[in-house]
Design a protein around this nucleic acid. Sequence first.
DNA 1: CTTCAACAATGAGAATTTTCATGATTTACA
DNA 2: TGTAAATCATGAAAATTCTCATTGTTGAAG
Lengths: 225, 225
Amino acid sequence: MKILIVEDEQPLLKSITSYFSEENYVCEGVATFNEAIEKVHLYDYDCILLDITLPDGNGLKILEALKAQKKAQGVIIISAKNSLDDKINGLDLGADDYLTKPFHLSELNARVKAVIRRKKFDTNDVIELGNIQINLLQRVAFANQTPLNLTRKELDILLHLIANKNYVVSKSSLAEQLWGDHIDQVDSFDFLFTHIKNLKRKLSGASARVEIKTVYGIGYQLLET
Amino acid sequence: MKILIVEDEQPLLKSITSYFSEENYVCEGVATFNEAIEKVHLYDYDCILLDITLPDGNGLKILEALKAQKKAQGVIIISAKNSLDDKINGLDLGADDYLTKPFHLSELNARVKAVIRRKKFDTNDVIELGNIQINLLQRVAFANQTPLNLTRKELDILLHLIANKNYVVSKSSLAEQLWGDHIDQVDSFDFLFTHIKNLKRKLSGASARVEIKTVYGIGYQLLET
DNA sequence: CTTCAACAATGAGAATTTTCATGATTTACA
DNA sequence: TGTAAATCATGAAAATTCTCATTGTTGAAG
């Protein structure tokens, strides 16, 4: 997951960046209107955190620019508490969520997760990746026309990996996805290993053109092949 | 679950009330400061939705009153969009969440759920009910000192029933609790019946002083005996 | 008071999930 | 490099969860 943080207050920018880096996001932070415009044209992000009160231009302009190119990233607007009317404008212009300062980083985190999820999955009921197709409504997956017969947990893992395609997903992130907040510190990832093994077997058995690469000590990474 | 809605705009009050009734909450709605104060002193609520711009007094006063008596209900403040500074005051005065108009009822619903959950469970790691004890951290349950050996799903069901003690919990509500948003419309509750059966067996087997009463056509209800 | 249809309980078996013991790989570091 | 410790893969067994067929119950309508 890659996010762009547009924020002119340096301390806040730093704390957001370090928080989300900690959460295993790839973060880029910029402090000015021009940098933001440039980044947005050059790279793809999964989510953009946008402070709309920038010194060299109104952040809403960036929102318009984002809408013009139609990439699939989510946008969360951050604003100072005295500019609330921007909320209406921002949401109208296509932002996905809105947060006023001051806020807790955990709240921002929750919203980023929600926005990314919505963007990735909610709109289309069928996900395609390489020769894999997943019908989210029926929760069934195919590789070429043939069903993969994934179990619930296997599908959950696959979806989480697809949502973070090309990025390394930590074991604890996967565990959280599978088990919600039931357990804070999982003492063993045995069950994960097993599910990953079975998932890999089914995928390669159906000659799916994806690879689940294991990243030693960290987690797993899904790549198209 | 019982909630009090304090809101002077009649149409909004009605729509909130009907929405949450639909969601199987017991709702009471009042439109004035005095009514609210009275209700709050007479009854216990799990959550109070509080519009702080009332005609006959500032809603924040109610918050103070709530803090004075220390019942365990959650409070969510609702305010018009131009009174944002109330947010700080409200949260300082002990509100649990804050929402500005206009909002989606589903968002309000999500926050109510979150607040109730936090209030019910997060603070103390051990729940007691009758002769039942549940350690939430280890997720183990006892009746008198002996372990009930509940499985994950059984414990989830029991917790959801305890959270709604004395109220009838619909089957779909339980199913959602067990399965998250995986399935929208469950076609069969067979798995629920089975888990309930096993849970009942384990509870009575350990002579726990609670009863899971089945409410024909609706769901289940947990009572102390 | 019956009868009927919808709903719920039950037990058995199938499928999935989890645990565990063992063996293979990777990495750090001497 | 070589070795040890940590991490991961694997297969089999145990535990849990889910499905299904059957039986029992409930409440509404005649």
